[in-house]
Design a protein around this nucleic acid. Structure first.
Lengths: 88, 88, 88, 88
DNA sequence: GTGGTCTAGACCACA
DNA sequence: GTGGTCTAGACCACC
């Protein structure tokens, strides 16, 4: 289950991207593996976000070079995130 | 045994085509010889792919001019692959 | 139903070829149409002939240029027979 | 409406490819335009062929370099066919 | 909505 | 047995 806060300052798609990025960082979805499908993510969030929002979140991760979509197969992890923007 | 990864980014039929192309390249199946039959390939993959998908893989190799199907006989190697996509 | 006479002088495959040639001549199977499949012919003859014999009959018609097999589709009429060797 | 003959010698997917190639040749679908979608083609043929078979027909045209599929958009004409198999 | 991937069967001629 | 044809579905990302 993915918990998102509709009333938070952070946009839903950023929240979702953050959740997925963390999963990737912590190896819950290793490089080369598929992310949950858009439908699965929609279900995992309890329908809190639309498919359009999910797509936006995935675009964020794609822009970061972390994931890549493949027609008919799914969205795949292709790299680990850089160090978390932690205590710099 | 042929190991395919259903959850990989690469479509199953491309994975299978890659495996067979390598076998041809390395002379494990010389020019003029028959490939394993579609049923045998289905078994070799542990039933990971259907015959239709196997056919798609063979179509890839046929499009590359490497193999050719003969009615009631099998699929035969008719040429060696061009140089592997070099690691230059 | 196709009636063949096992005890006739004429070989079974010739008898069968004759039956089929007549059907073609009389337009029961027009040019461009498919003949009954080998299995269907086997059934039509009540199992009186083996598939090998059926194939031989079809080869006769193919040699006469009347029919042509197509992989995965069937055997097709491609021409009408010449005048029957009647009262020459 | 697209008329296909299930019982013809020519495979259904070849018949369909021929129809579409003619449409392209005669400018009914100009270069750069989209072909009817796979679902539309399924309907145009009166459901005579499955989507998989339609795809096979489109693969034929793609192999000839006439069309190209675009994800989520459709299949587009990218070139005119070479001279028709002349009646010389 | 679109095309791309994949399944699990069927029937066919041919060897 | 073999490969070639075809079906009637499914799920996926993408638009």
């Amino acid at each position: 289950m993915i918990e998102l806060d509709r009333d938070a300052m952070t946009p839903m798609y950023v929240q979702l991207a953050n959740v997925l990025r963390d999963r990737i960082r912590h190896g819950q979805i290793p490089v080369g593996r598929r992310l949950p499908s858009q439908s699965e993510l929609e279900a995992e969030t309890g329908g809190a976000v639309s498919r359009r929002t999910i797509k936006t979140a995935l675009e964020v991760l794609a822009d970061e070079g972390l994931v890549q979509g493949v027609q008919g197969k799914g969205v795949f992890v292709i790299a680990l995130p850089a160090n978390p923007p932690a205590s710099e």
